[in-house]
Simulated scan of single mutants.
Amino acid sequence: MAIYNLGSINADNVYRVPHLVAPGETLAATALTRGLGGKGANMSVAAARAAARVVHIGAVGSDGRWASDRLMEYGVDTRHIAQVSAPTGHANICVDAAGENAIVLFAGANHAVDDGMIGAALAEASAGDIFVTQNETNGQPYAAQTAQGLGLRVVYAAAPFDAGAVRTVLPFLDLLVLNEVEAAQLTAETGSNLDEMAVADIVVTMGAKGCRWMSQDAGVQDFPALEVTPVDTTGAGDTFTGYLIAGLDRGMPMAQAIDLATQAAALMVTRVGTADVIPDLKEIQDQRLG
């Protein structure tokens, strides 16, 4: 099987700061690193490192070939990453001493993906494959509808959160993944509880409280978090989602896939960085927590 990911590709500029900046404040960073990021790229790397076959659908500018090359080095199929005239997307990320972060995004080439690019990639997919997307590119409704029509399992990671974006893809979803804040925003915007939405499976991540799986077939199950000392939470949610869908792609039951994803995310928050430091499956097996 395979995972097709319509996802963002960013250059991540990570600034270490004493605390997250306040309005009107000028703050000196203590360090700067640059690496591969974007929610889409992070999920592709995570799924590939979890031993899944991953096809990434996206775009970079002429300044972003290094990002496409890096994805290929990590085992991602990059044939459907286009080079466009817009600059490569980037994120300026501030990380404080407690590992919390604040992020400013510039979409760039991520918003230059067109339906032709998406259709060409999904034409290679087979029924039973997984399609995943997030809210950092354009083309999500077309891609989700097309993937559903081809018999793919459609997954949406609802970040950065926008209620309108969720509504456009909701009719096509088999799995919705969102964090606790996003879940509260979605219920407030729609006036419906999550268990009233016509999605077979919903997974809500809750940080140190673990996560909740809401299934139309299996009911509601809570999963505890693993106790670790975080140094950087950037990319942890993307790592969780990438490992989750990789587990499902390998035929794992949802509960087993959530356990694997929880292990990966817990190890991820003990590292500084994003896509470049996502753990691989052997590391998780060797350093199993809990």
Rank of each mutant, 00 (worst) to 15 (best):
A163H: 05
S192Q: 13
E182N: 11
G164W: 06
V177T: 12
L178F: 03
F161N: 05
L173W: 03
D162Q: 12
L173I: 03
V177W: 01
G164N: 13
G191W: 03
A163S: 14
A188W: 01
L170G: 06
V169M: 00
L176R: 05
D174E: 14
L186S: 01
L178V: 05
E182I: 11
L173H: 12
L194A: 10
V177P: 00
A183L: 03
A163N: 12
F172I: 08
L186W: 12
S192K: 15
V169E: 01
R167E: 12
D162R: 10
T187S: 13
G191N: 06
T190F: 08
L186M: 06
E180D: 13
F161Y: 14
L176S: 11
N193T: 10
A188R: 10
L175Q: 05
F161I: 06
T187V: 11
G191Q: 06
S192A: 14
P171W: 03
L178I: 02
S192N: 11
L173P: 05
A165T: 12
V177K: 01
S192P: 03
F161V: 04
V166I: 14
D174L: 11
V169N: 03
N193E: 15
G191V: 11
G164E: 15
L186Y: 07
A188F: 01
A165Q: 14
G164H: 09
L176M: 07
